[in-house]
Simulated assay, not measured.
Amino acid sequence: MRILITGGAGFIGRWVVQRLLEDGHQVWILDNLSNGRLENIKEFEGKKNLMEVIIGDIKDQALLNELFLKQFDICYHLGASINVQESIDDPATTFENDTVGTFHILEQCRKHGVKLVFMSTCMVYNRAVSFRGIMEIDPIKPASPYAGAKIAAENMVLSYHHSFGLPVVVIRPFNTYGPFQKTGGEGGVMAIFIKRKLEGKTLDIYGDGSQTRDLLYVEDCARFVAWAGYSDRVNGEIVNAGLGRDISINDLAKLIVKDDSRINHIPHIHPQSEIAKLLCNYDKAEKLLGWKPQVRLEDGILKTEQWIQSTNLI
């Protein structure tokens, strides 16, 4: 197929690109490099299936008008502002990128009959209240402008399915980690913790550390994202993906550093937007896509640590 991926030079986007290329599709990447980096996709240079890398913005309507003339079969829309604290500090930028930008992509997909896979987030949920984990029908809560912008975009995406019959799917991966994730302030907790461990620094935990995360290895996530585009069974649906196992931030820190003296608790920067318990129920993904995670948390930590040790990219 002919596929456009926005945010394809980002952390998850890079792995989705790899999966799509391995599956034999022709791939175009659109990224403004606000979160992504060209180094992430450098190894794909020269691959005959990578058709073009466009440095540009999803809000640039003239660019989109020209780009969508290439007659794509699927658009994987991963391009977004992704930082919760930045959304609190500057809600307008997150809204413009995540909601308005998604609207512009939607309009192009509607005009050209392109299936849209919309990357949302587990951060739209309230919290897990049972051991079954969070299901797609469970309550949502816009606890940050980031979550609010994603929820608004989700609703627009689904409205195009109901109003125009556009094939769309909203996907909500849980906390994704692995190689190529940034290890600084914009990175995920896993990458930051491993980097600080390797540097001999303390692992700083926001709040009391009792909050839990469901950590999904990035190659499992990329397989889920790709398959959501391939299947008509998820059209018009919201679908979760996660490990199906949660771990407290305290226990994660101990698992990584194995030395309580190197763990430090600091005041939370946005306690009002914290989600106390994130645990994914991925039954729907397994039923409709035949997808389930393959990489155990302990194995994923090892893979990620080996990658961070081996690179100077971060």
Rank of each mutant, 00 (worst) to 15 (best):
T311V: 04
K150H: 02
E22H: 03
Q85T: 13
E86F: 09
D204V: 04
V84F: 03
M156P: 00
K70W: 06
I263R: 04
P179C: 01
S261V: 08
W291I: 06
L106G: 15
D246T: 05
K284A: 05
Q309V: 00
V168F: 01
I151T: 07
E154I: 00
Q108T: 02
D208M: 05
S81K: 14
P145R: 02
L38K: 15
D220C: 03
I12K: 00
K182P: 09
I275P: 04
G148K: 06
F72V: 06
I12L: 14
P139A: 03
A62M: 13
G242C: 09
E43Y: 08
G178C: 10
L166K: 08
F164E: 11
P145M: 00
Q61N: 14
N312A: 12
I256D: 03
I301V: 15
D259M: 01
L252Y: 09
I266R: 11
M1K: 13
E199P: 08
G165W: 02
I263M: 10
R245N: 12
I82R: 09
V114K: 05
I88A: 02
C280D: 04
G13H: 07
L302N: 01
A276I: 11
D57M: 10
S248E: 04
L67K: 03
L302M: 09
I205N: 00
L20V: 10
D204F: 04
L38W: 02
T99D: 07
R223H: 12
L255N: 03
D73F: 07
C109V: 05
L64Q: 07
Q26R: 12
K111I: 11
L4F: 13
E52Y: 08
G187N: 07
D23S: 13
A143H: 09
D246P: 02
N32Q: 04
D60C: 05
Y146W: 06
H112E: 13
W15P: 00
L106S: 04
G300R: 00
N97S: 14
S144A: 10
V27C: 07
P293E: 06
D98Q: 11
V225Y: 07
Q309D: 00
G133F: 10
V17F: 02
K195T: 03
N32F: 03
Q181H: 13
E107V: 11
V218N: 07
L252V: 14
S163R: 14
D246I: 03
A226W: 08
Q26K: 12
D232C: 05
V218M: 01
G185F: 07
A92H: 09
G8K: 06
L203Y: 08
K258F: 01
G242L: 04
I263Y: 09
D98K: 10
D208T: 11
K201Y: 04
F193H: 02
E96W: 11
I82A: 12
V84T: 12
D89W: 10
K141D: 15
S231Y: 04
W291D: 02
Q26H: 07
T121D: 06
G24C: 06
R127F: 13
N250K: 10
K115G: 03
R2S: 13
S210T: 15
H112W: 12
C75I: 04
